[in-house]
Structure formats: C-alpha cells, structure tokens
Amino acid sequence: MTAPALTAGPARRTSTVFVASAFVAGAVAMLMGGMLAIWLDFRANAPTRVAEDGGRLIKDWLKKDVAIPEVLSNTMMFTFVVACLMAQWAVYAARRGDKSHATLALAITLFTGLALLNAQIALWVQMGIALRTDAYETMFCAITGTMFAIIASAMAYSFVAMFRVLAGRVNDVDVLAGHALYWYAVSGTFAAMWFVVYVQK
C-alpha cells in the first residue's frame, strides 16, 4: 500500500516588490527630509537687517514681490489624496481579480500624477521666479524640482503596474500594494514639503 500523494500547498506569498518599494519609499522620504532640513537651516540663519523705515528687523529670505499661488499648492495637496485613494482601490480590485477596475484605478492614479505635474509647472510659471538672484529662489527651484522628479517616478511605477495588469497579471497584488505604498510615501513627502515650503514659506 502506498501513501496517498499530498496535494501541493498554497503558493508561498512573496512580497519582494512590496519590501523593495518600502525601502525606496524610505529613501525618498530621507531625500526630501534632508532637503527640508537644509531649507530650514537656511531659513533660520537667513541674514537679518533693519527695514528701510528703521522700525523693525526683517529677514532676507522670501522677497516681498514673490507670491506663492496657494490655490495651486493646496490643490496639489488634495490631488495627492485622490491619487492615494485610487492606488488603494487598485489593490482592492486586484485582490478580487477585478481586472477592469484595477486598470481604471491605475489609469486615474496615472492621470492624477499628470495633473500634479501640470499644477507644479503652472505654479512655477505663475511665480515667475528666476534662478539667478538669491538663495531662496535657488533652493525653491531645487526642492520643487526634486518633488517633480519624485512624482514622475511614481507615475512611472503606475504605468508599469497598469501595463502588468493589462497584460493579465491582475493577481500580482504584491506589485500593486508596493505601488500604493510608494504613492503614500510620496504623498507624505509632499505634505511635509507643502507645509514647510508653501505654508510656512
């Protein structure tokens, strides 16, 4: 008598992409954290001088004639919430094997990314700052430019994830969970930058 052959157990769930995404998300957070730290250092140590009216001390940091379009920056902040919701929706749909909804969610995530890039460009155009006068403008362009690149990287991730789902790998939840995590991290990073650069200035 031979023992009955055991059936194969459930496939071991690998979370390679999710773990790697978590590390990359941490790296992105540290990148922006470091830049914000230098920003705060420069702002705190910006030279002070007596105002022309002689009544008070003013800091040579943000020029009087430079206005940050807060409607745009606040809109960007809210757009990130939408992007995160869509990224999480993609995970929800993939867990149920729902290819069409997963694809739709990823497409909207990609589109919100595009909207964010558009808003960032509009913000630069409306501010009209040049890169050749003072520390504030140099640092503003550097930090918002880096954020622009980070958003573009998240969009690239969305594109790859959507391509995979369209190609039939809808059950690959690991990738979509990693994608959602990355968008959360980018959103958190933007929130920190938004508060320091756009709100506190």
Partner: peptide
C-alpha cells in the same frame, strides 16, 4: 538599510549644490 536611508540625504544635498553651482552661486 543604513546606505538606503543615508545616501538619499546626500543626493538631496547634491541637487541643491548643483542647482546653485550652475546658476547664481549665492547659497552653497
């Protein structure tokens, strides 16, 4: 983990230094 979390900070500093170097050179 140490490398993945510390070198991005250096990349941020490179971005600042590079933008300043190719433009105004007033900050870094």
């Amino acid at each position: 983990i140490g490398i993945a979390l510390t070198l991005p900070v250096a990349i941020g500093a490179i971005v600042y230094v590079w933008v300043d170097f190719v433009n105004a050179r007033v900050a870094f």
